[in-house]
């Protein structure tokens, strides 16, 4: 059987990849993709700890459901915002968004 640590390592790796993407991407959609990766890393942790440490009440799975719902809401609003910004600025790159400076 796989020890609990392996799942936590996997989630830490996914989290770091997400952080790297959010830091380096110039495209806003790329940043949203990275944020989805980070939320999935949190979900893996919740489910793994739920299964290994407290399987009696399914608290971790319930919380993961909430995280998935929040992520869906966040990405919907984020993508609509991106489309709205694209209509005005005609770009998707973060260095092109200088509307507030002008």
């Amino acid at each position: 059987m796989i020890p609990l640590g392996f799942f936590v390592f996997l989630s830490a790796f996914l989290f770091c990849v997400g952080i790297y993407g959010a830091l380096t991407r110039r495209n806003v959609i790329g940043i949203l993709i990275s944020i989805e990766l980070i939320l999935n890393a949190a979900n893996i942790n919740l489910v793994a700890f739920n299964k290994y440490l407290a399987p009696k009440d399914a608290l971790g799975q319930v919380f993961s459901l909430f995280v998935i719902a929040i992520a869906a809401a966040a990405s919907v609003v984020g993508l609509v915002l991106i489309i709205a910004i694209y209509r005005n600025a005609k770009t998707l790159f973060t260095d092109g968004f200088t509307l507030m400076k002008e």
Partner: peptide, 30 residues
């Protein structure tokens, strides 16, 4: 990339030294 690699190393180091990290399953799932 440098900063995230350091972050990953720190995280893995912290998790690997914890006692629950070697825990193996022995209970029924929810």
């Amino acid at each position: 990339a440098f900063i995230t690699t350091i972050l990953l190393c720190i995280l893995i180091r912290v998790f690997a030294t914890n006692p629950w990290s070697k825990m193996v399953l022995n209970v029924a799932p929810a």
